[in-house]
Amino acid sequence: MSTTLAPAALNEPQVQDPGRRRGWAPYLLIAPGAIWMLLFLVLPILMMVYVSFWTQTTFAIKPILTTKSWVTFFSSETYLSSLWTTVRIWLLVLGCTVIVGYPTALFVGLFVRNKTLSTVLLVLCVIPFWTSFLIRVLAWRPMLGEQGAINIILMGLGIIREPISALLFTELSVVIGMTQIYCVFMVGPIAFMLSRIDPNIIEAARDLGASFPRIFRKIILPLSMPGVVVGAIFVSVMVLGEFATSAALSGRKTNMLGNIIVTQVGSLKWAFAAVAGVVLTVVMGMVVALLLRVVDLRREL
């Protein structure tokens, strides 16, 4: 905007730009937010980076700079495998939320043209959030366990004879649980983008002779991609930082980076925790940067 306004301002020096005249006053509006973020986000991150280079002994931590914690992290089987577990679970959950969430969003955002009904349906998606996070996670145990609802039903139907033990306390149960919890964050943004598509556009494509699969591929999917990207960013940031779901549903067998941080902090190994935290922050940054490259959000929104 400023570049387009500049020539006009030169031609008419009498006219004062009302936005400019107020000077620094508008910046007061963002001051509380900026101060908050500086104190409680930027400073802690810098602190975390700093602490990751401190010297860790069994019972104490000293501010003597060393790369020992970093070397330990990247030469340890446990830490590297937890990094890989984190990435694997993130990709699986992301894939599952797209597979479950996109068709749901397609229904709510595109096929339900009644605004009230589509709002009601979106609220229905959010209803699980009226219970606490812990209850939502733990509720999966009686569902997935060996004596759980799914095994009982499958055995009752005669589909299986022995209960499937792989359902609970495995990576599968972690993925199932996370998909359920985070799916709505995928549905929301996609449904929003889909509901903004002018129905005339789809009718126009139909009138021009395209079949629905074609219209979906060439019109609906590209126009909803910003929603998919925003949803993917929500889900990614939350899944990458997860520790509670993986602890509760894997029986502490699946260790994500979040679990490592919790354990290290619990045993006062601040330097190791800080290293894992920095690695996690960097991974998240890369993931978000990658997703933002998929679609130019500035243009699409």
Binding site: D198, R206, D207
Partner: peptide, 19 residues
């Protein structure tokens, strides 16, 4: 179905494909 009729439709708001 609409797309087999050989009839074209021009919409009031044009309904161009924005992308």
């Amino acid at each position: 179905p609409a797309h087999r009729r050989g009839i074209g439709f021009v919409f009031q708001n044009f309904a161009l494909f924005p992308h």
